[in-house]
Amino acid sequence: MPHPRRFRAFLKSNDRGDITDMTSVPLHYYLVVSAALFAIGLAGALTRRNAIIALIGIELMLNAANLNFIAFWRYSPKAEAVTGVMFVLFSIGIAAAEAAVGLALIIAIYRHYRTTNLDEISSMKG
């Protein structure tokens, strides 16, 4: 029967490191994924007619930027300064506020025009 203390160390070694380092994937992979995500969001925001989908596109673009921040933080030589992580944390908070206000605006517009089609909500008069 193994000694419990030794066993505890064993457990720690096994369970702690489950989230593995991905050192084999170079940084530019992440950057390309992020660029693709940004482009998808941009394309959606520019081409779809529905206001909510446009908002979703904007959220995707914001998330693409967040991914960039985290990737650069992870691969930076000065990772002890957690600036990238902090930036994303604040960006997530702002995105939540943005989504709430944006959707409230869409609902208000819908009440007025009875539509969420962006092509029809183009007049500047109420």
């Binding site: 989230i19 985290i70 994303v88 997530i92």
Partner: peptide
Amino acid sequence: LAAFYLQLNAQFIGFAQILVY
């Protein structure tokens, strides 16, 4: 995206992403 954050060792951000988004 949350899975990406977890892979990049940013546990807190990954979970915050799930919670918020």
